[in-house]
Amino acid sequence: MSESPGVQAAPQEVWERPFVRAHQEWCSAFVLELRLRDVPGPVIGERLGEVEGHCTETGEPPSAAFGDPTDYAREIDAESSPERVSGVWAIAALGAGQVLAMLVGTDAIRHWASGEPLTYNPVQLGCLAVVAAALLCLPRVLRPLMAHPWVVGTALFAVVTAAGVGAAAAGGTSSTVVPVSPAVIAIGLFAVVLALSWLEYRELAGDSADDLVTSPLTPEPRANTAARRSGWSTFLPPLMIPIYYLAVGLLSWVFG
């Protein structure tokens, strides 16, 4: 997008910059709106660099020079090159796959622990499909979720809870026996969860390397906290579901 002789030798995340820290609310809203529009991190950093450079020279706060951050983000994005990132959809799909494998797998562990065969019926399959659909549409509902967290969040929670209750209630109805041992299913799906976690980690690590919101401006003398933070934020999300899977499995064996 731009040539940057000399200035971009050591890209620095925008959150490390004193200007961004001083105008945190405005800058966060600006970055959030561009993120929701799938604008790549370095492009967002360049737009924020324009704001910082201009405000530094005029002495104005960004709200005075550029107005409302969300409106300005929409306007500048409408006039910019249509570069987009799509990693969020891949991560949503991987996350949905992990959750489905976890739901079926932990149910298989419960049956394994009690010595019963794993069964299913159409209602339970339908409820699983509803949960999968809710997870897959998360990137699409992110904007209304941020704007109305209680309304949209409660609606999502209600849908997922209803699916869970529906699946549990349907457990007593006539079911088909899965012709595979619950132990094989539980272990096999744990392997699937681990594989999906690895793919999610790869996706997040790729994003953290290529899609950080880096500033094109001269770096400020403090940057390493960003690297530490991005390392943890890359590592933790993919591990959460395998850890939960193991914890539920353990509890099923102990109390099942």
Partner: peptide
């Protein structure tokens, strides 16, 4: 800046970031 972004998108200008005399840098 939206106008400058449009000029850039339409390839009517090229851009480069330079270190400023004062301040963090200029586009």
């Amino acid at each position: 800046y939206p106008l400058l972004a449009r000029l850039e998108k339409n390839e009517l200008v090229i851009v480069d970031w330079r270190t400023g005399d004062s301040g963090p840098g200029r586009k």
